[in-house]
């Protein structure tokens, strides 16, 4: 059952990634269309912080981070484990990828929280 559950989750996060990543692309690359400001302006520090201070951005970024990391690292685990590995190495790959994913998720969440709680002017 375990592999079925892992794979089902890999599929379930796809719509989350498509919607949130698509929105992220739209905001960052098509700022003139959606925000009426140039791309350079949209990527400036001030505008970036202002965007990051909304609760919606905070929650959705963390959701995108979790979904993207799970989907990508499940795929990467599949690719690496398709190589001929000993059972010990296979276990190491599984554990290593989970730890790496948790680390990157933790780091990304910290950066998102830092942005959310940024005090303008110091």
């Amino acid at each position: 059952m375990r592999e079925t559950r892992l794979w089902s989750l890999h599929l379930l996060v796809i719509p989350i990634i498509v919607v949130l990543l698509g929105t992220h692309f739209a905001i960052i690359h098509y700022a003139p269309v959606f925000y009426g400001m140039s791309v350079e302006e949209a990527r400036s520090f001030e505008v970036m912080i202002e965007r990051g201070r909304s609760i919606a951005q905070f929650v959705l970024y963390i959701l995108l981070l979790a979904a993207g990391l799970y989907h990508g690292l499940y795929g990467l685990r599949g690719i690496i484990r398709e190589l001929p590995l000993t059972p010990a190495l296979a276990k190491l790959v599984d554990v290593g990828i989970v730890l790496f994913g948790l680390f990157i998720f933790g780091f990304g969440t910290y950066v998102t929280w830092w942005t959310f709680s940024f005090k303008i002017g110091g």
Binding site: M1, R2, E3, T4, L6, W7, G78, R81, E82, A90
Partner: peptide, 13 residues
């Protein structure tokens, strides 16, 4: 059959 099929080296690869 699940024990033999629902493994990493099963249908999901």
């Amino acid at each position: 059959r699940l024990e033999a099929i629902d493994i990493f080296h099963g249908p999901y690869q």
